[in-house]
Amino acid sequence: MPDLTINTDIVRKVLTSFVHSEITRTGFQRAVLGLSGGLDSALACFIAAEALGPQNVLAVRMPYRTSSPESLEHAQLVIEATGVQSLTVEITPMVEPLFERFPDMSPTRRGNVMARERMIILFDQSSATQSLVVGTGNKTEILLGYSTLYGDSASALNPLGDLYKTQIRQLSAAMGVPEVIISKPPSADLWIGQTDEGELGFTYEEVDKLLYLLVDERFTPQECVEAGYAEPFVRGVVERVRRNHFKRTMPVIAKLSNRTIGYDFLYLRDWGT
């Protein structure tokens, strides 16, 4: 069985150094992030607070009218535990007019609108407070495409994107994220009763191990089946990773000139810093 255990001390050191470096090297001092009450954003908040000092972190709670009250309370626990600055911006009056304009909108569309509204608020706060948006997406959801493009996937830097969900739990425990947040079922809380594992059809525990073999250890799908994973599960996950790759790339540009952004105009973002 793959072992996804991480040494939380070294990971903590790398991620807090990363957040500090990537924000301060461009002349910024502050971070802004959406705090949902869930585990990923709680951990991102702890990391940002340790990296920059809590006074330099703004956590924004952005509930919708159906959001679980528990989410708001759990976000408050994180704000109190870290001492970060906080702000609550209801998204209900912003998204309802669009829902009324398209009354037959599916839950997925509504969820996407809500995620993108939250992105608008965070990037607006980024501009208002001269801060950078810290992302909260983990490796599991990025690989599975379990996010809204230009919604919760949008950020300026993401300290969590190379940690599987089960590793997020380990690091969260080590950094003092309240236990009630670590142990509750993960949920995007976009509609009542939604849970990640219910929607995905498998547990993070299961899929993290499979993704680790496929991605980190470069196993073929067949080798994963031989290692004991059910073939439909393996095929389903492999297909999901492929189908959602568009969420992991910049928009595709049609090549015309001799030098085209993305193909042969290549620089790191940290160019000059």
Partner: peptide
Amino acid sequence: GMTHAPFL
């Protein structure tokens, strides 16, 4: 190379 060890 992240593992349980105290270094990458």
